[in-house]
C-alpha cells in the first residue's frame, strides 16, 4: 500500500487513517509489533513528529497500544477492529452514494446498478 498525502487535510489525520487501513488489511496483523516511528516516518516520507502524532491518536482509538519498552503493538481485540472496519465501510458507501447522486442517480438506482455490477 502506498502512502498518499492529499492537500486539503492535516497530514497526521491522513497518516492515522492509512495506518488504520493497513491494520484492517492485515499489513500489520493483530497483536504484532509496529515499526518504529522513525521507520514509519521514513517510509511515508514525512516528519517523525507528524507520524508520532498519528500513532498517539491511534492509541486513543484503542487500535494500538504502547508498551513502554517494547514499542507499539496492534490490538488483539478483533471486535474493536471489526467495528472500525464497519465505520470505514459505511463511509465508503456514503462516498459512493454521494458520487452517484452528483451523477443524477437516486439511491435506489445506485443500489440497483451496484447489484447488477457485483
Amino acid at each position: 500500500m502506498e502512502w498518499k498525502i492529499l492537500d486539503n487535510r492535516p497530514i497526521w489525520a491522513q497518516l492515522q487513517e492509512q495506518l488504520t487501513l493497513r491494520i484492517i488489511a492485515g499489513t500489520y496483523p493483530l497483536g504484532s509489533r509496529l515499526p518504529s516511528v522513525r521507520e514509519l516516518a521514513a517510509e511515508a516520507g514525512v516528519n517523525p513528529n507528524t507520524m508520532q502524532r498519528a500513532l498517539s491518536s491511534l492509541e486513543g482509538s484503542g487500535l494500538v497500544a504502547a508498551n513502554r519498552t517494547a514499542g507499539r503493538f496492534v490490538t488483539e481485540d478483533r471486535e474493536r477492529l471489526d467495528a472500525i472496519r464497519m465505520e470505514f465501510a459505511r463511509s465508503r458507501m456514503e462516498e459512493y452514494l454521494a458520487g452517484m447522486e452528483t451523477l443524477g442517480f437516486t439511491r435506489d438506482e445506485a443500489k440497483q446498478l451496484l447489484m447488477e455490477e457485483a
Binding site: D7, N8, R9, P10, I11, W12, A13, N47, T50, R53
Partner: peptide, 12 residues
C-alpha cells in the same frame, strides 16, 4: 505548524 495551517485554512 503545517497541520495547524491545514486544519484552519483547509488547504495545503
Amino acid at each position: 505548524t503545517v497541520d495547524h495551517i491545514r486544519e484552519t485554512e483547509g488547504k495545503s
